[in-house]
Write a protein that binds this DNA or RNA. Structure first.
Lengths: 240, 240
DNA sequence: TGTACATCAGTGAACGCGCGTTCACTGATGTAC
DNA sequence: TGTACATCAGTGAACGCGCGTTCACTGATGTAC
């Protein structure tokens, strides 16, 4: 069923058994993208793709879950690299937020099954009770840290206000990007032809809306919000 | 494994075979919520829960996929009802958007596996090639129609501007609510203790940000957006 | 009013499948002497 | 320089499992006469 040619391979030399591990990882990653369903990737298929017998997988990974965890780790690193590369192309903090979001979205659209694996699964607990690749892992990473730092620079620049919480803003932007792109993946055709344009719109709306919240107060739900907002915008300055 | 007592049941009378169908549906729905993984719900388990033999399921559903599709339909109706009920409690169109979003979010948090089934799955094609519960089905429904109508009323009220597209705005609000709540489901602990508060924040940000886009122009990406935004807000009127 | 029969809801047992995982094994490779 | 041996990467075959689905069947029920 899998079209891998399974070329004959030479076994690794003594002490070089670790050489097989990255090959297994890459095969699992590739199969996941091809099959389009992480659950449907079998240990057998991965072994066949690598050109090795099935039990060999167990020399490098404790079980299937450990293999999938390793793939997660790999994918996560790819996603974070894409975001950091994108952010490095601008000095403007607000634009940096937008570029990060667009890189995030582009990664998800280009690698839907990988994105799904790390971001759209229900959390399964480790044997140790830890949730792999949960909130804590993400928030502890350098990419998330850079994101909140960029938000802080937006506060410093006067886009957001000093009383706003950079963590909450970062999470909100993350939710906006994730919401747009995961909806595009789950419900194709949404937002018309240009899915990236929809995502850009959603990300921009969230980024700007957070600024509005900074001006209106955090939980401002007046009795007639439509009238209050209409009045606010009626007095707003003309834009360039 | 499933704790259903499987009380002895009487067979339906002649011509009343259809009576079993809703019971099967309800059992499948309940099992899904309990197990927390739609894929792990087996036809056998559903039959056992109903108190009927496994082949009986096939008298009412062509195959397992048809059963899951029927559950989807049911869940979708629940979700839409929750949103319409929530929206009915206000006359204000902007507040109506927010209440719809909060009802959506609350439904997802209360029924995580059901929400996941209808909104977080990769689209699987029907035997006929149609995507069940895809964008087209949702957009054609009355709930989505009411949502865009509420957006139109926001335009009429001066919250959004006449040149903005109600469909795009509706989709953006949907993406925001979905993004916030699906992130909460997939990465527990995000947004701190109160997940609903985070969702409210994200929904509000999107709703307000769309209004900002209406004033700034649809794809306004100036060279130094931070400075431009800071200038805009520096001139903005004081808020109540 | 009684009975033979067609209908139809529901069943017991089995089929074949692919899966994760294990076990006893092979044979190449480096090393000690 | 030659050889016995320990090490270690990798294997072939099998285990047991739960799954979706099918098939020939049973037996209660309503109906025609």
């Amino acid at each position: 069923m899998t079209t891998a040619p399974a070329r004959p391979r030479r076994r690794a030399r003594r002490g070089e058994g670790e050489r097989l591990r990255p090959e297994i990882l890459a095969a699992a990653k590739a199969l996941m993208a091809e099959i389009g369903d992480a659950d449907a990737v079998s240990v057998r298929a991965v072994a066949e793709r690598v050109g090795v017998s099935t039990p060999s997988i167990y020399l490098h990974f404790a079980d299937k879950a450990a293999l999938l965890d390793a793939v997660c780790e790999d994918v996560f690193a790819d996603l974070e690299r894409a975001m950091e590369d994108a952010a490095a192309t601008t000095e403007d903090p607000f634009e940096g937020l937008r570029l990060r979001g667009m890189a995030y979205v582009a990664f998800a659209i280009e690698n839907p099954e990988h994105y799904r694996l790390v971001m759209m699964r229900m959390p399964g607990q480790d044997h140790s009770g830890r949730i792999p690749f949960g909130r804590d892992d993400i928030v502890a990473g350098t990419t998330y840290h850079q994101l909140t730092a960029a938000v802080q620079r937006c506060i410093d620049a006067g886009v957001y206000t000093a009383d706003q919480d950079p963590e909450l803003i970062a999470t909100t932007l993350w939710a906006a990007a994730h919401g747009a792109v995961s909806l595009v993946l789950a419900k194709p055709g949404i937002g018309g032809e240009d899915a990236m344009a929809l995502c850009d719109y959603v990300i921009s709306a969230a980024g700007l809306g957070v600024a509005m919240i900074g001006r209106l107060g955090p939980a401002d739900h007046p009795e007639h919000p439509s009238a209050a907002l209409a009045a606010f915008f009626a007095q707003a300055p003309p834009t360039t």
